[in-house]
Amino acid sequence: MTAKSIGIGKFLFIFLCVGIVLSFLLALCSLAYAIDPEWFLDYVETVEIGISILSIFLLIVTFALFFIWIFRVHRDFKQISDSYPVTPWGALARILIPIYNLVGLWTIYRDMAHFLIARESKELRSQGWKLKSMIPYYYFPIFVQNILNRIIFRSDERLAILEIVAFGVDIFLNMMYIRMVVLISKGIVAANEEKALQLSQQVEAAELQEPQ
């Protein structure tokens, strides 16, 4: 049995890392503006526009990868255990449907964590607990990020310091996502191995019980 989400998870991991680098560069641009707006206009503005555009395109690809990844993760979990409570399409609905996603963004990872915690392997249980403990650290910054971005976009003046804070939150969120992608990917690999082991043990037991 192969876990289809692992490959996409690797791509997502790399895009999130690149996202961190770009957010850091944009924070530096905002800092340059905060320190000396004239110098910024002469030397940094064009670079900032380029990085911003690149970030937007990168974000679009990252979102696409994320949706594919979350879909495949749920398909993998369903393959490991039919009793897994969320279907792949259900997972996408939890993320994409407004209002519903206020709950969905929390429960989707909570269900994954509970699934891992319920496994027999100590390693899987440990990963499940780690995942569960991370949910608040990813969930609440999403709202902080949203509020900061709204304030920045609605302001008539450029709020450079607030931008730096917002980029800081972006970096933090990307790091959380990276950690979760790694934990979930490792969890799927380990759960797959556990299931394969269980199956082989069942086969061996069945062979022993067969009449000679």
């Binding site: 690797k10 791509f11 690149l54 990168l58």
Partner: peptide, 24 residues
């Protein structure tokens, strides 16, 4: 370990990163 890329995956990543870079 979990995030090591195969040759094929490296090519796909480069292609995917190339799209935003090209558009920008």
């Amino acid at each position: 370990g979990a995030m090591d890329l195969t040759k094929k995956e490296k090519r796909i990543v480069l292609f995917l990163l190339g799209i935003p870079l090209f558009l920008t």
